[in-house]
Simulated assay, not measured.
Amino acid sequence: MTTPPLHGIRIVEIAGIGPGPFCGMMLADHGAEVIRIERLGDATVTALAKDPLLRSRRTIALNLKNPAAIAAVQRIVATADGLIEGFRPGVMERLGLGPDVLLETNPRLVYGRMTGWGQTGPMAPQPGHDINYIAQSGALHAFGTAGGKPQFPINMVGDFGGGGMMLAFGMLAAILHAQKTGQGQVVDCAMTEGSAVLMSMIWGFRGSGRWNDARGTNLLDGGAHFYDTYETSDGRWVSIGAIEPQFYAALRRVMALDGDHWTAQFDPRQWPALKARLTDQFKTKTRDEWCAAFEGHEVCFAPVLSFDEAVTDPHNAARGAFVEAGGLTQPAPAPRYSASPTVAPVMPAGHDETLLAELGFGKDEIVALSSSPA
Results as ranks from 00 to 15, higher is better:
residue 298 E to Q: 14
residue 247 F to K: 09
residue 225 H to N: 10
residue 217 T to S: 05
residue 273 A to G: 15
residue 218 N to E: 10
residue 243 I to R: 06
residue 270 Q to P: 03
residue 261 H to I: 08
residue 212 N to A: 10
residue 250 A to H: 01
residue 285 K to H: 15
residue 206 R to Y: 12
residue 270 Q to N: 01
residue 205 F to Y: 03
residue 230 Y to P: 01
residue 234 D to V: 07
residue 272 P to M: 09
residue 291 C to A: 14
residue 250 A to S: 11
residue 296 G to R: 13
residue 263 T to F: 14
residue 297 H to K: 11
residue 261 H to S: 06
residue 203 W to P: 01
residue 289 E to L: 12
residue 242 A to N: 06
residue 194 G to C: 06
residue 214 A to M: 04
residue 243 I to A: 07
residue 282 F to I: 04
residue 216 G to E: 00
residue 278 L to M: 05
residue 205 F to M: 14
residue 229 T to S: 14
residue 286 T to V: 11
residue 210 R to S: 06
residue 202 I to T: 00
residue 216 G to C: 06
residue 215 R to K: 07
residue 221 D to T: 08
residue 239 S to N: 12
residue 230 Y to K: 04
residue 250 A to F: 00
residue 223 G to V: 04
residue 269 R to Q: 03
residue 252 R to Y: 12
residue 272 P to K: 03
residue 196 A to H: 00
residue 205 F to S: 06
residue 257 L to W: 09
residue 249 A to D: 01
residue 234 D to W: 00
residue 262 W to D: 14
residue 302 A to M: 14
residue 276 A to S: 10
residue 250 A to Y: 03
residue 215 R to M: 02
residue 204 G to T: 03
residue 212 N to M: 03
residue 288 D to C: 12
residue 290 W to L: 14
residue 288 D to M: 13
residue 225 H to Q: 09
residue 217 T to W: 07
residue 276 A to W: 07
residue 270 Q to D: 07
residue 211 W to A: 07
residue 209 G to P: 02
residue 297 H to A: 15
residue 262 W to H: 14
residue 240 I to C: 08
residue 279 T to R: 08
residue 239 S to K: 10
residue 198 L to Q: 03
residue 283 K to C: 04
residue 275 K to H: 06
residue 203 W to E: 06
residue 244 E to F: 06
residue 197 V to P: 01
residue 206 R to A: 15
residue 212 N to Q: 09
residue 216 G to M: 03
residue 201 M to W: 00
residue 278 L to I: 08
residue 243 I to D: 07
residue 266 F to T: 01
residue 213 D to H: 11
residue 194 G to D: 07
residue 225 H to R: 03
residue 221 D to P: 13
residue 260 D to V: 12
residue 286 T to I: 10
residue 246 Q to F: 02
residue 289 E to M: 11
residue 220 L to V: 05
residue 254 V to T: 02
residue 213 D to S: 14
residue 292 A to D: 09
residue 238 V to G: 10
residue 284 T to H: 08
residue 300 C to I: 13
residue 265 Q to L: 06
residue 238 V to A: 03
residue 252 R to W: 05
residue 243 I to L: 13
residue 212 N to Y: 02
residue 213 D to I: 01
residue 220 L to I: 12
residue 203 W to I: 00
residue 270 Q to G: 07
residue 260 D to H: 02
